[in-house]
Amino acid sequence: MKQEREKIAEKTKRLNELMAWFDGDEFALEEAVEKYAEATKLAAEIERSLEGLKNKVVRIDLAEEEE
């Protein structure tokens, strides 16, 4: 789970970098198409990962723990 969360964090970071490029002075239409394709792919992957990520609940027995 930790690995999956880290992957999501990495992809989100890259997506934010791409967004910053689109917003910045270095933006060029010729490169934008390629970067846009990368961004849509990343966004879809992040969304899928978020959907698939479930919480793990573990019960701890108080009496056993105290033995």
């Binding site: 919480n55 573990v58 019960r59 701890i60 108080l62 723990e65």
Partner: peptide, 18 residues
């Protein structure tokens, strides 16, 4: 637990019943 599941994923939740 339901709200945690709706809002987040990947959490490790340890529970002691009291």
């Amino acid at each position: 637990i339901k709200i945690l599941g709706d809002r987040a994923g990947g959490l490790e939740i340890s529970v002691i019943n009291t």
